[in-house]
């Protein structure tokens, strides 16, 4: 149905082709407009669906209970915890499923806890903590991060992403709550994903 730019008709057809001039122009214009409309329409409906992921979604920034304070090593060694939350995966709904992981670390023997996202801000690989080197190492491009997440070496544009984290006293139990967010990778600026 695609309407090409109008080439000049061969001379042989000119004598037979009905209505040159104004009438012919009108027919051509209407044919292009109507033909164009019916051609574009199914794409419009398809592209509306295709672009659905760009619609504004509410941001996931609820605070999540990750563990009790007792489970975080007292000597300040980071430990990895799964983050459990309800997850909507396209059409399926998974209640209470692991949606990611965080490293939790007590700050200088206190009850203050620091949380780091396990995702490397360079290209999004899953970093691991090396107890021997006391560093976080990225398996993909060998970025290394200090125990507090500061970048030591490697191509990462920023240190590991810290997450908002607080210790709440609930009926005498010390609970660690983390606001779990994912961030865009590859940029020096830390920007949360919607």
């Amino acid at each position: 149905m695609a309407m090409p730019p109008q080439p000049t008709a061969p001379a042989a057809h000119k004598s037979t082709a009905r209505g040159g001039g104004r009438r012919g122009f009108f027919a051509k214009a209407v044919a292009i407009v109507v033909g164009g409309m019916v051609t574009v329409f199914p794409f419009t409906a398809g592209l509306a669906v295709f672009f659905d992921p760009l619609r504004k979604k509410s941001r996931r920034d609820k605070s999540i209970l990750v563990t009790s304070l007792d489970a975080v090593p007292k000597d300040g060694t980071p430990r990895k915890f799964a983050v459990i939350a309800d997850r909507q995966n396209a059409w399926n709904y998974f209640p209470k499923e692991p949606i990611g992981a965080v490293y939790l670390r007590r700050v200088s023997d206190s009850d203050k806890v620091e949380a780091l996202n396990v995702i490397c801000p360079h290209a999004g690989c899953f970093v691991g903590f090396s107890p021997q080197r006391k560093e976080y190492l990225c398996p993909c491009h060998t970025s290394a991060f200090a125990i507090d997440g500061e970048l030591i070496s490697g191509p990462s544009p920023r240190g590991l992403d810290t997450l908002r984290c607080e210790v709440r006293d609930i009926d005498g139990r010390q609970e660690v709550w983390v606001t779990f967010e994912d961030f865009y990778t590859g940029t020096a600026e830390k920007k949360a994903k919607a």
Partner: peptide, 13 residues
């Protein structure tokens, strides 16, 4: 006689 473009294409469209 006519040609496919534009008359018949108009009707088709």
């Amino acid at each position: 006689d006519a040609t496919f473009w534009p008359d018949q294409i108009l009707k088709d469209a």
